[in-house]
Design a protein around this nucleic acid. Structure first.
Lengths: 196, 196
DNA sequence: TATATTTCTTAACATACATTAAGTATAATA
DNA sequence: TATTATACTTAATGTATGTTAAGAAATATA
């Protein structure tokens, strides 16, 4: 049962579960492996799972009408990810979820999640809390985009996602903070050059 | 009990309550009136309430280091508003919540809200659902800011907040979509001029 | 109603960031 | 290891949007 310790610890940060509840929960999970550059979900599909990353790293992104990608979120180990719009509405979504490296998730289907809310009400609390936290960080990110120049958004990203910056291709970071790879490159040069 | 019908209807869109539960819930509410241009909450304070607007309109905004305001959200009648970061963490927040016109809210204190989660677990579900919906719209707004030119963001705003555009000062709309009032003015002129 | 504030508009000028293009480095895969 | 694809950098040029300033319109307050 060691392979479930990461997800159980993640959940126990907010709620307590009995052994029975743990077993019940675990029985609902479905492991999915995604190879580097393959997709867990594509735009146009209906999102059927809340996914918890146990290994590797995913990125959620959209493609705009001009063919440009925009990164909505990264999901490294120990993070949850889904196309929330599609998951809630069960309509075709707009988000691609792709593996940046070979990745494993534990997938909780929408129907399983809803059963969980009824059988173990504490899960309602758990998902309320992680949704609240997610909301707060998206609000902050929006305000950063409205109020900060790209250079400060980059520095904030490096602080908040410390470690991730080393793993991610720079162009993904650029897309996340909302600049072109060329401009990010220029900023990095400037930051290096000016700091000595 | 008619003055509570708006908030009860709002809640019943997602959960069912018994008459006893309704009465229990209502007993926790505290009405607050805010005059035009006055604040329900200021940056630096700790947010103690989730507020439901029964009349009027509020705006939530930050002030950046250069003194510029950035609108995070509008809350007209029938909407909930809070400084989520501060409400969750109970640390000093960064959001000002100001009345755009004379406004009345029903305020649910954080302690009351937590009591509610325990006494009436359906409220856990209610706030999970409205938080999920809020998350989806902030994600979409962020992606719009990353991918759309200001003109399309303005048009989206007009569609999504139809009616609000007529009530709000243009400078507030400009701040919400992330442009200066001068530039919004130019866009409006262009849209008028080009559409005939 | 008159006066003072605030908001809106217009226009000239400034700038942060995008685009294009080409070369270089890095990493994936045979 | 060799080869190929992908990612990164640099630089010239372009553009969406910001800034400043001043007058006009709308709104609040005396």
């Amino acid at each position: 049962m060691d392979k479930y310790s990461l997800i159980l610890e993640n959940i126990k940060r907010h709620i307590k579960l009995t052994q029975d509840e743990e077993r019940n929960f675990i029985s609902l999970l479905k492991p999915i492996a995604i190879k580097r550059k393959e997709w867990l979900l594509e735009a146009g599909e209906i999102c059927k799972y809340s996914c918890f990353v146990t290994n590797g790293c995913l990125r959620g992104y959209t493609i705009d009408t001009n063919g440009f990608e925009h990164v909505l979120s990264f999901a490294p180990k120990n993070w949850w990810i889904a196309d929330m719009y599609s998951l809630i509405s069960q309509k075709p979504g707009t988000i691609y979820i792709q593996a940046l490296e070979s990745t494993e998730v534990q997938a909780l289907s929408k129907t399983a999640q809803e059963r969980l809310y009824i059988e173990i009400p504490a899960f309602e609390r758990f998902f309320r809390i992680i949704t609240e936290n997610s909301l707060v960080s998206f609000q902050q990110r929006l305000l950063d985009n409205l109020s900060l120049p790209a250079e400060e958004r980059y520095q904030n990203f490096c602080k908040r996602y410390h470690g991730l910056t080393d793993i991610l291709p720079a162009k993904q970071v650029a897309s996340y903070i909302g600049v072109t790879p060329e401009f990010l490159s220029k900023m990095k040069h400037k930051l290096l050059y000016n700091s000595r």
